[in-house]
C-alpha cells in the first residue's frame, strides 16, 4: 500500500533551514560527566510515562495487583510478630508488636521493591538502551518512583491497623512522614542507580542484590526498636540512612522511640550523599551501557 502524501497531512510543516535549532556536540565524555539537569528536565515527560507504564503493567499483570502491596508487608508482619514478638520477645517501645513491625515494614517494603526494581531496570530495558538516546537515569528513576504507589496503598493499610489499636500519630508526623519517605526515595534511588549500572556490566550482581537487601533490613530498626542500640553507637548507627528514615517514620505515627534531631540529620545527610554518589557513578559508567548491553 502506498504512503499518504505527507504534504496532505495537517501539521507536517517543512523544516525551515537556518540556525533555529541548537547544535549538539557529540564528543567523548569526560571522566566525571555532570548531571545535565536541563536535559533531565526536558525528559520529565518520559520519566512520567515510564512510571505510568511500570504501574500499569504491574497492576495488569499480577493476579493480586494492588492487594499484593498490602499483603506483602502484612504477611511479613504476621511472621515477624510470631518469631520476633512472641518467641524472641524483642522489645517494641511499648507498642503492640504487630503495629510496631508493620509501621517499619511498610517503609522497608517500599525500599526493598524500589531498590530491586531499579537494579533490574536497565537489563530489563536493553532494547531501549541500545536503540534510543535519552538520559538513562530516568530508567532506574522510574522504578523508584513507581514503587511509591505501593507505599501509598500500604500506608492506608497501616492507618487501618492503627485505628484498630487506637494509635494516634504525633502532630509532627505531617513533616516527619514526608521527610522520612523522601530519605527513602533518595537512598533507594542512589542504591538503584549504582546497582543498575553494575548489573548491566556484571552478570552476578543480580544475585548479590537480594542478599544485600536482607542484610540491610537487619541493620535497620525494622524488627527491633532504635532504643535497643546502645547510646554510644547511636550516631554511627544513624549513618545508615534507613535508621533515621524508618525510626522517624515509625515514631511519627506511633509516638515512641524516635531518633534525635542530630541522628535524623545524619541519616538525611547520608541519604543525600548516597543519592548523589549513585547518580555520579551511573553517569560515569553510562557511556558503556549501550556497548555491553
Amino acid at each position: 500500500m502506498g504512503l499518504p502524501d505527507a504534504s496532505a497531512l495537517p501539521g507536517v510543516p517543512a523544516i525551515p533551514p537556518g540556525p533555529a535549532s541548537a547544535v549538539v556536540r557529540v564528543a567523548p565524555a569526560g571522566a566525571w560527566p555532570g548531571f545535565d539537569l536541563p536535559e533531565l528536565w526536558r525528559y520529565r515527560g518520559l520519566l512520567f510515562f515510564l512510571v505510568w507504564r511500570e504501574i500499569k503493567v504491574r497492576y495488569a499483570q499480577t493476579v493480586l495487583g494492588a492487594a499484593w502491596a498490602i499483603l506483602q508487608p502484612l504477611l511479613t508482619t504476621v511472621v515477624f510478630t510470631v518469631i520476633f514478638g512472641r518467641f524472641a520477645r524483642l522489645p517494641s517501645d511499648g507498642v503492640p508488636y504487630p503495629l510496631f513491625s508493620l509501621a517499619a515494614l511498610v517503609p522497608w517494603t517500599y525500599f526493598n521493591t524500589a531498590v530491586s526494581g531499579a537494579s533490574n531496570s536497565l537489563t530489563a530495558n536493553t532494547s531501549l538502551v541500545t536503540k534510543v538516546y535519552f538520559p538513562r537515569l530516568v530508567i532506574p528513576g522510574a522504578a523508584v518512583l513507581a514503587a511509591l504507589l505501593d507505599l501509598a496503598v500500604s500506608i492506608v493499610a497501616l492507618l487501618v491497623l492503627m485505628l484498630f489499636y487506637h494509635a494516634a500519630p504525633r502532630p509532627a508526623a505531617v513533616v516527619l512522614v514526608p521527610v522520612s519517605v523522601l530519605m527513602m526515595v533518595l537512598t533507594a534511588a542512589g542504591m538503584g542507580f549504582w546497582l543498575a549500572a553494575l548489573n548491566i556490566q556484571y552478570r552476578d550482581v543480580k544475585y548479590v542484590v537480594p542478599f544485600l537487601l536482607q542484610l540491610w533490613m537487619f541493620a535497620s530498626p525494622v524488627v527491633y526498636p532504635l532504643s535497643l542500640v546502645p547510646d554510644r553507637y547511636r550516631l554511627a548507627y544513624s549513618l545508615n540512612p534507613l535508621a533515621g528514615a524508618i525510626a522517624g517514620f515509625r515514631s511519627a505515627l506511633l509516638g515512641a522511640g524516635g531518633p534525635t534531631g542530630v541522628e535524623f540529620g545524619v541519616s538525611l545527610g547520608m541519604a543525600c550523599l548516597i543519592f548523589v554518589g549513585g547518580a555520579a557513578y551511573f553517569r560515569r559508567t553510562e557511556r558503556v551501557f549501550a556497548d555491553v548491553a
Binding site: P19, V23, R25, V26, A27, P28, K131, V132, A290
Partner: peptide, 12 residues
C-alpha cells in the same frame, strides 16, 4: 546511543 572515543560530531 553510544559515545565516541575520539573526535566529535556537531549535530543541528
Amino acid at each position: 546511543i553510544t559515545n565516541p572515543t575520539t573526535g566529535y560530531a556537531d549535530i543541528r
